[in-house]
Amino acid sequence: MKWEAKIIQYKGEKRIAVIFKKDAALIARIKEFQGARWSQSRVLWHLPDTDENRIHFKLPLLASTQPNSEGQQALEKFKQHLRSKRYSESTIGTYSEALRSFLVFYNTKPIAEITNEDIIIYNNEYILKNNLSASYQNQIVNSIKLYFATVQNRKIDIEKVHRPKRAKVLPNVLSKEEVKAILEAHSNVKHKMMLSMIYSCGLRRSELLNLKPSNIDSKRNIVLLKNAKGKKDRIAPLSPKILKMLREYYAEYKPTVWLFEGQTKGEQYSETSLQKILKTAVLKARILKPVTLHWLRHSYATHLLESGTDLRYIQELLGHNSSKTTEIYTHVSTKSIQQIKSPFDDL
């Protein structure tokens, strides 16, 4: 595990301690949590003890935050419905824990009597009053809407709830020179191959690890991504350079079940090990940015856009449902911006 979370007493207040080895990417991530603090004396990061943070770090909820018997039955029915619709266990966990918070708030009220007005009150008196994050608020609102529409079979007018505007966060992008330095940092063929595949095909971490040898079609120069995010199949083109590297890799490692296997044959390569490979490469490349694996995917999309690839094709290559998701790369592409002459140059 990358980190350990536990409840501590800090200056007379309950806090959530998050302990991990020094890692630039994790430090950057922990700083995004509201109220995050570094304790020099205890040598650890600590956060406010809230339901949201407990859920995020997989800590048990307080006894007072457990729903009553009706609420627990409602949660079980909700989980059963999500499983019947083949939602991933991760999504089921996120939605059910968000709904749990709402049901606890109305522990003394029968679910059948909950109205739109109750949801507005919950939004104002719990979410906003406790200064919970916008993303957590949206999770709760989405789970409430889905629960009442499916399990309760009645419509709740969610539009009356004031929902937060999503923060317009630009994706992190590396230059081609930085990407090259990272990909060439490892001498190990497998390590180099895994990072190269992520960048050259714009893959998500899970998509790379779920690849099987049969997913590589060398005659058509494509990789078939089966059951990717959103349970959709898609294809990505394979460059001649990548195909050559894959043949060299295959000849040396002879994978059986998975394209990239751990030390035991037939065992899927772990996410933790893959992250360590990137971390080592970034250090060797002497890049000080808190690079994550997803940065390589962002860089792939941005570099395609800068080389003139149509946004519609990039959307298909990345597997985005909406073109709006892909359009964010137009805001980080420097192709047009670099052509603008600063008035400072004329002074």
Rank of each mutant, 00 (worst) to 15 (best):
N172G: 15
G35L: 00
S273N: 13
G319H: 00
K6W: 03
M1T: 12
K324N: 13
L47Q: 06
V189W: 07
S143D: 03
P60T: 06
S239N: 07
K165F: 08
E327T: 01
P343A: 02
E178K: 10
Q34D: 12
E125Q: 15
P171D: 13
A167L: 12
I30F: 14
L75H: 06
R42T: 03
G35Q: 02
L318I: 03
Q275V: 01
N153E: 15
P237N: 08
A236H: 12
Q263D: 10
W38S: 02
I8G: 10
S196R: 14
P240E: 12
F148H: 10
Q34W: 04
I314Q: 02
K2V: 10
I119Y: 02
K324D: 13
E117F: 09
R29T: 09
Y253W: 14
Q80P: 00
A25I: 06
G202R: 00
H298E: 07
T334C: 04
S187Q: 13
D345I: 11
P164K: 06
I235K: 14
Y136W: 15
Y250P: 01
T309N: 01
I16E: 02
K6S: 15
D345P: 02
G262A: 13
I328Y: 11
F102P: 07
Q338I: 12
T280Y: 11
K219I: 08
Q339E: 15
V169P: 01
V104W: 06
K229N: 10
Q80C: 02
F33E: 06
G308A: 02
Q315H: 05
S299H: 01
L128P: 03
P60D: 09
T50H: 08
I182S: 05
Q66E: 13
Q339N: 14
P67F: 00
